[in-house]
Design a protein around this nucleic acid. Structure first.
Length: 114
DNA sequence: CTCGTGACGGGGG
DNA sequence: TCCCCCGCCACGA
């Protein structure tokens, strides 16, 4: 069973629609203060890592629009592959356009997470 | 309790 | 744009 701290991260990440993404920092910013916990991009990354290869692990990427699961952001890593399967396009620099794919939860969505 | 370790990110060069 | 530095903090040894 995941800690309460992580539960909020997983609940929010679980709302990300197929074909859309959120960034570690964005999740941290939205959850900071919830349940009196302090959230930072790095701790969100740690929590997602702990999720293993369980959904929706692939839908959380870094602020540059790339997958941090590969040291070098080269095409062909698993996370990028899975996202491409659901329609997210990546350029030759292994980055996707956040203007297009970043998902922004509504206040109601956030309310359901709290 | 301390310490090392990151799937982070912003700022400066 | 890329690279490096550094603050960030949960987690496990």
């Amino acid at each position: 069973m995941a800690s309460a701290y992580r539960e909020y991260i997983y609940r929010l990440a679980g709302l990300i629609p197929r074909g859309r993404v959120m960034t570690y920092g964005q999740i941290a910013e939205l959850l900071d203060g919830v349940n009196n916990n302090r959230y930072t991009a790095q701790t969100v990354g740690w929590a997602m890592h702990a999720l293993g290869d369980q959904e929706p692990w692939q839908r959380v990427i870094n602020a540059s629009g790339g997958c941090s699961t590969s040291k070098v952001m080269v095409p062909g890593n698993k996370q990028q592959f899975l996202l491409e399967q659901e329609g997210v396009e990546f350029n030759s620099q292994a980055r996707c356009n956040l203007e297009k794919y970043l998902w922004i939860p509504t206040d109601a969505d956030m309310e359901s997470v709290r």
